[in-house]
Amino acid sequence: MMFDPFGDFDTNGYLQNSLRLKDPLEVKESEHLAFEASLEDALAYLAKRKSIDYKAVLKTHEILFSGFYHWAGKDRSELVPHLAVFKGSKDDPRHTIFERPDLIRRSVEYALELAANKKRFRERPGEVMGQLAFAHPFLDGNGRTILLIYMELCYRTRFAIDWSNTNKDDYLRALSDEIQNPFEGHLDNYLKPYLLDISSRDEWPEMIGGIKGLDGLDKEGITYDNLDNPEVQQLYKTYRSQRID
């Protein structure tokens, strides 16, 4: 079953997309065409920003996906403030829980604070990516939006990740471990061998195009439930206590 937080999949297609598409492959292809058509505009926007803040994250998503989603640039707290979002079934011990809608902005801003400490960021590049991924600001397009934000943050610290040589499955496994148990080095250890010095953004479009599995990673296995559900509240309570410990 497709992700349907608006409850109108039968009439408006997947997430009310502009073409009202329902077929997963057609959605994936059309969405990625919108992303590719807007990629250079998004990169140019980020390059001109004096600082990267939460508004810049929202605007980047809007630039990338407004050709396919009318709600592009709006986060989950605005669109579905009553829903919790997971990857995998919440009954599965290996599920990934994403940030509560009302705390998304705070989580993103915390990631940006981590990136502002340039020495720490270069030494622990996985912490920032893990925090951004945990925030999961949008109903769709998170992976690609966060990737661009992360690349810009890295550039401002004068390094890059050689994404074309990473392995999709290994990366996602490390990312999932980082979200579940942050600040323990899971994603730092995976990314460090791919860290490069960088002095120019010129190669970015080609670099991004070479990333394997970029077209729609965050549609796979997404589920949701109501925040009022006591079981969901307990999941968040348990997760918070684990992050603090």
Rank of each mutant, 00 (worst) to 15 (best):
D4N: 09
D4L: 04
D4Q: 04
D4S: 05
F6D: 00
F6A: 02
F9A: 02
F9V: 00
D10C: 11
N12H: 14
N12M: 11
G13D: 05
Y14N: 01
N17K: 00
N17M: 03
S18D: 13
R20H: 14
R20L: 09
K22E: 11
K22T: 07
D23Y: 06
D23N: 13
D23M: 01
P24F: 00
S30P: 01
H32L: 06
H32M: 06
A34V: 07
A34M: 06
F35W: 09
F35S: 02
E36A: 14
E36W: 11
E36T: 15
A37K: 14
S38P: 08
E40T: 10
A42C: 06
A42Y: 05
Y45I: 04
L46Y: 05
A47R: 10
K48R: 14
K48C: 12
R49G: 02
K50R: 14
K50D: 15
S51T: 15
S51V: 15
S51Q: 11
I52E: 05
I52V: 13
D53E: 12
Y54K: 09
K55E: 11
K55F: 12
V57P: 04
V57D: 05
L58Y: 01
T60L: 05
T60E: 09
T60S: 09
E62T: 08
G67W: 07
F68W: 11
Y69K: 03
Y69D: 01
H70L: 13
H70W: 13
W71S: 08
G73F: 09
K74G: 01
D75N: 11
R76A: 03
S77T: 09
E78H: 10
V80T: 14
V80S: 12
P81N: 08
H82T: 06
H82Q: 14
L83P: 06
L83G: 03
A84T: 01
F86H: 00
K87G: 03
K87T: 01
G88L: 06
D91V: 10
D92P: 06
H95M: 10
H95N: 09
H95C: 08
T96A: 09
I97L: 15
F98Q: 00
E99C: 13
E99K: 05
P101S: 02
D102I: 02
D102R: 07
L103I: 07
I104N: 08
R105H: 10
V108H: 10
E109N: 12
A111F: 12
A111K: 08
A111Y: 10
E113M: 12
E113C: 08
E113L: 14
L114S: 09
L114R: 06
L114Y: 09
A116T: 11
N117W: 07
K118G: 04
K118F: 05
K119A: 14
K119C: 11
R120K: 15
F121E: 08
E123M: 12
R124E: 12
E127V: 10
V128E: 00
M129G: 04
L132A: 09
L132S: 02
A133Q: 12
